[in-house]
Amino acid sequence: MQKKAARDEPEPKPVLTVKDVSYWYGAKQALDDVSFEVYPGRVTALLGPNGAGKTTLFSLITRLFDAPTGRIEICGRSAAEWGARALGPLGVVFQQPTLDLDLTVKQNLRYFAALRGLKRKEADERMVRALKELDMAERIGERVRSLNGGHRRRVEIARSLLHSPKLLLLDEPTIGLDDPTRAAIVRHVHELARSGGIGVLWATHLFDEVEPDDALLVLDRGRIVARGIAKDVVAETGAGDLGGAFRLLIAGDTEEDVAA
């Protein structure tokens, strides 16, 4: 008797959908018809120069701003329709630090956990686990003011994970950090995505924060000018590395044009 063929596994559903989103500051257009998706278990790198529109896009996803056009969905829910409930699966590390410097690490995390409706015991268990994964468990009783920039960032990442988000937004999270600390955070976030099935959108202008197998979006002057797996985008431009590909893409040139 012939066995039935195994069913194909269903395609994963995106944890973030951005469709036809534009935004203006007065007469200046910051985003121009931006569309993309972020999938679970993968880091999607949003690469662009300063002023490309990355932070504006994050402000729209988190509803700090309202999108006047287009649609944004988190795990299939639009915040415009579902309100704050749509933001439940979202974890965020903003570009600007948001910890209370005069509270301890534990107090900062407990405060956030209470806002998310976590009970004290569960919150404490989760914060210890998250801090341990970031090599920060021994600093749980220290005031944030006494921590260096890299340690503060690790606390913010731990905080963003307390409620087990399905989507993690990181807006230039390593600015001002030394190279070893940056590398450690990049490794940890990629491992989080792979092992925890979290969809990550990482905004950066630093090429070494993008791994070859990451999904890549290149944003320039408010428009997505390239998308795909990072190593494939590099190959398609004919450049030798991501930095070279990026320079070609935002200049609108080809490798032959530059050589000429």
Rank of each mutant, 00 (worst) to 15 (best):
E172C: 02
I250M: 04
A235W: 06
G48P: 08
V144T: 09
N148G: 13
A67E: 14
L192D: 09
Y25S: 05
R120Q: 13
E142F: 12
R187C: 03
L216N: 05
Q96I: 11
A123Y: 02
P180S: 03
G196V: 10
G176C: 00
G26L: 05
F36W: 05
D214K: 09
D8Q: 15
V21M: 09
L134H: 11
V18T: 04
L46I: 07
R145N: 13
A114H: 12
H188K: 08
D253H: 11
A203K: 07
G83D: 01
G51Y: 07
L161Q: 03
T104S: 12
L248T: 00
R139L: 15
R194N: 11
I157W: 07
D33I: 04
F58A: 04
G199T: 06
D66H: 13
R120K: 14
V258N: 01
A230S: 12
R187I: 05
G117C: 10
E37Y: 02
A27N: 12
R154N: 08
P14Y: 00
T17D: 14
D257K: 09
D178F: 01
Q2R: 14
K13V: 10
S35C: 02
K13G: 11
W202H: 04
R227H: 13
A245K: 00
A158F: 03
N50R: 08
V38A: 06
A45I: 02
L57P: 03
F246A: 04
G91V: 03
N50M: 06
S195Q: 15
E236G: 08
G150E: 06
P89M: 06
P40S: 04
P12Y: 00
R159W: 01
E73T: 02
S59N: 15
A183K: 14
F36P: 02
V258E: 12
G228C: 03
S160D: 10
L118R: 06
A203L: 01
R145E: 15
L115S: 11
V92C: 10
D100A: 12
I61M: 11
L90M: 10
D135L: 13
K106D: 15
L147D: 07
L170A: 00
G222E: 09
R63V: 12
A45S: 12
L248H: 03
K54P: 11
R153A: 06
F112P: 05
F112M: 14
D8A: 15
V15C: 10
A130E: 14
L118F: 04
S160Q: 06
R221V: 09
